[in-house]
Design a protein around this nucleic acid. Structure first.
Length: 107
DNA sequence: GGCATGACTCGAC
DNA sequence: TGTCGAGCCATGC
C-alpha cells in the first residue's frame, strides 16, 4: 500500500486540531514538496466530499479563504470556522498567525 | 500515451 | 513595491 501525495494530504488535514487552521503551502512543505501546494488544493477539492476531512481549516498563505467558492454554500466555509472560534472577516482569517497550525512544527 | 489544468507559493525583474 | 513566470503531482479528456 503505497501512500500517494494525495493520501498524505488527507492524513495531515485530518490531524488539524479544532479551532486551528493551516495553509496549502505548510502541508506541502510537511510532505516535502513546497511547490506542490496546487496539488494540495486539488486534494481538498476531492476531500470536500469527505466529511472526515475538515477542508475548511485549510486556507492559502495569506489566510484568505480562496477555496470557499468550492463549498456547497458561499459562506459555509466561513461559518464552519466561526463555529470553531475563528474570526473571519472579508474572506480572511483574523489573527491568522495565532490560529496558524504548522504540521512541520507541531508534528 | 500525451497535453492541459488546478482551492498555491516563491523568486526574479 | 508590484507584476510575471516557473515548479510541483495527480486527474481528466
Amino acid at each position: 500500500m503505497e501512500e500517494s501525495f494525495f493520501d498524505r494530504v488527507y492524513e495531515v488535514v485530518k490531524l488539524i486540531p479544532q479551532g486551528r487552521v493551516t495553509s496549502y503551502g505548510a502541508i506541502a512543505v510537511y510532505l516535502g514538496a513546497t511547490r506542490s501546494a496546487r496539488m494540495v488544493g486539488w486534494a481538498m477539492n476531492n476531500a470536500s466530499k469527505m466529511e472526515d476531512i475538515p477542508a475548511h481549516r485549510v486556507v492559502n498563505r495569506n489566510g484568505l479563504l480562496t477555496g470557499k467558492h468550492h463549498f456547497p454554500g458561499t459562506y459555509v466555509m466561513q461559518q464552519l470556522l466561526e463555529e470553531e472560534g475563528i474570526v473571519v472577516k472579508e474572506d480572511r482569517i483574523v489573527d491568522f498567525k495565532r490560529h496558524f497550525w504548522d504540521p512541520s512544527i507541531e508534528l
